[in-house]
Write a protein that binds this DNA or RNA. Sequence first.
DNA 1: ACATATTTTTAGATAAGACTAAAAAATATA
DNA 2: TATATTTTTTAGTCTTATCTAAAAATATGT
Lengths: 225, 225
Amino acid sequence: MSSKYVPMFTSSEENYLKAIYHLEIGVDKGVSTNAIAEKLVTKASSVTDMVKKLSEKELIIYKKYQGVTLTNFGKKIASSIVRKHRLWEVFLVEKLNFSWDEVHDVAEQLEHIKSPKLINQLDIFLGFPSQDPHGDPIPDKDGNLKVVEKSLLSTLLKNESGICVGVNDSSSEFLQFLDKKGITLGKQIKVLEKENFDGSLFISIDQKKLSISNKIANNLYIQKQ
Amino acid sequence: MSSKYVPMFTSSEENYLKAIYHLEIGVDKGVSTNAIAEKLVTKASSVTDMVKKLSEKELIIYKKYQGVTLTNFGKKIASSIVRKHRLWEVFLVEKLNFSWDEVHDVAEQLEHIKSPKLINQLDIFLGFPSQDPHGDPIPDKDGNLKVVEKSLLSTLLKNESGICVGVNDSSSEFLQFLDKKGITLGKQIKVLEKENFDGSLFISIDQKKLSISNKIANNLYIQKQ
DNA sequence: ACATATTTTTAGATAAGACTAAAAAATATA
DNA sequence: TATATTTTTTAGTCTTATCTAAAAATATGT
Ligand SMILES: [Mn+2]
Ligand SMILES: [Mn+2]
Ligand SMILES: [Mn+2]
Ligand SMILES: [Mn+2]
């Protein structure tokens, strides 16, 4: 009888790994203590303590004052947490009738449940979704992401159009704002006018026309057509 | 990522409340420190500490050396944890293809997820089940249990029969043993012979006949016919 | 280059929840 | 009733994860 060694980490350790995972995307330097502290709404001194522990466990590379980087091992753990988070979000929306602005806080709890079988079966039950309700990709078991081509709505020019495929900000305020305007994933958006002085857009979606600020356009991902 | 959910009670507090809830069923005295310690696989001194805290929060009545009793408030919290535990067990078996001997440990984790909407929607999704996979009743939102008439198989006499409706021991060893013998909830069992000297039974289930020990018969609930 | 500002680390404290060992109270037994 | 045993509580320690305040290192600006 062979039993596989499954490393156990505390929820706190997992949250730090996930924060570092998100923060190191697209940057080549180490992730700073302050950046982690800000993301986790904690103090820099707490981060220093935890970062020493994670380094001890070979989950991250840490040298004093140099910031941190995930090791391959750390990446594996972090992406498995992200995978769980996003699969649970799909479950909540698809099966339990949650709206996309209600799922995040619950998923923050569910992502720490330890059971390989649970997450495998959930994946099967949901039909192997590749994206969560916010259009973010769900890592596979090996941590690989299916990268989808997407651009910010703000990069569209006048008379160009695209399909709404994701959000940059997934705060419930922003998501509820989008709901109010009838902007949901999958919908087509066409830019009818673009104001130079403030970057605001006049767009059409469904049969409706509306204007949206530059801030909105900077937080909405579309797939160009 | 930045939202900090402040739970009303910690997982540890909830586990103590649940343990007391189960231990005080059918007894009129306070639940002893040692009984709680044994149930939670911890030390009596730890129990004393926690019991003081729960008493402070008016979840239990505690007087030194007298054992503890849940207050109505404590009962409400405890039964809501049991409700969550059992609903999650149903979910795992009905939707995720877990077998009844695999669900308990995962449900021990899931029962501490804080989200009233989650548990309401889960209840709807599962079709308002009244029992968990082990035949145990699921408390409603107010903590009320639908009491079902049931007896131990060992109380059946020769030539009497009944429907298998629950287990007294839900350890995975016992449940796997039942699986191996083809004994699952809903099946009819008839007592063909009853040995006086050791209490063992010779029974029929489906088309098969088999003998089971008194220990088994003492851990299986049936509804008499 | 050097003073200033910012970032990061250290030192020490706190709180929750567990433990061990020993004291105190309750219970059982002779 | 006196003694022995068991149960429960207390006292003190440990670990994890936080915090504040202060020191040290790094980055910035003139
Ligand atoms: Mn989320
Ligand atoms: Mn998401
Ligand atoms: Mn259970
Ligand atoms: Mn059960």
